[in-house]
Design a protein around this nucleic acid. Structure first.
Ligand SMILES: [Zn+2]
Ligand SMILES: [Zn+2]
Ligand SMILES: [Zn+2]
Ligand SMILES: [Zn+2]
Lengths: 147, 147
DNA sequence: AGCATAATCGATACTTAGTATCATTTGATG
DNA sequence: CATCAAATGATACTAAGTATCGATTATGCT
């Protein structure tokens, strides 16, 4: 997992300043193993303004240190990124997140490129699950209709 | 493509009423070949309240007649659904949408099921492009970073 | 260390994409 | 055509941010 210092290093390498608010946020971020909301971050960093929290989230998403995902109903969720291209498996019940990589699938998505006059610029994939922890707690999985 | 009557038929078959507002919306919806926003619909059905437009959108998404997608920046967009399981190719410049199906990829996503204690309940896939029309108009494709 | 200054900050107002409430209207059924 | 739950429109509210702006601060320079 990413450490607060690694986050600060990326911020500084990007030409941005290492500030007290950003250090506070880096600490709180790295304490989350399992995905979180922006408002959780706001609540967990009292004294840091809401605008600063959202600005920092945006900065870190741009720097590819944070991933922004959304649950089946569209509510947004954030998680720390590992390295490289990946996607996420998200528990629709508790919001816990893990990464997955599937090179065969990536190859297939690239092939769409040649099929039309379009130029492919990216893709978004989210796999929804009810995670093992929620299952043992008795949550009944229901299929979600998504596109 | 879906006709207004087919939309109304699905609404009635679902046990919902065929009302003036819903007929107006069915007409406007089917006139859109290429994806639209909720606010466009509001603007195009004067006299129909904003709440009714959003309620009808929700109803039609539940009935799987409308697909809700989002652009790389997260702004929502709707499009009429064809039949069966599918995903979408979305132009990040003009928002135009087409469906795609990739059975090999679907099979791969199902296989994730066996890999963990999780139960897969669904997935979301969007492929972003700059479409042929935008390309001839000189739009330069830039890759989008997504998960 | 002291200073300049652009970056960043917090407070606050605003925006976008909806949902909730509720009094009124309307469409389906008998 | 009377009934009455379903649906409607107006309005208020919420969630998830973004924009503005005057005050503060980190960084580089001397
Ligand atoms: Zn990610
Ligand atoms: Zn990928
Ligand atoms: Zn669809
Ligand atoms: Zn699929």
């Amino acid at each position: 997992m990413l450490s607060p210092d690694e986050i600060l290093a990326v911020i500084e390498d990007g030409g941005f300043r290492s500030t007290a608010s950003r250090r506070r946020l880096a600490d709180v971020l790295t304490s989350h193993e399992e995905g979180f909301t922006a408002e959780e971050l706001v609540a967990e960093t009292p004294g840091v303004g809401r605008a600063t929290v959202y600005r920092t989230i945006r900065l870190l998403v741009e720097q590819e240190l944070l991933c922004k995902l959304s649950l089946p109903d569209g509510t947004p969720r954030y998680t720390l990124a590992q390295r490289g291209h990946h996607h996420h498996v998200v528990c629709q019940n508790c919001g816990s997140v893990r990464e997955f990589r599937q090179s065969a699938m990536e190859r297939m998505l690239k092939e769409l490129e040649s099929s039309d006059g379009d130029v492919v610029t990216g893709h978004r994939i989210e796999v929804f699950v009810v995670c093992a922890e929620c299952l043992v707690r008795g949550v009944v999985p229901t299929n979600v209709h998504q596109h």
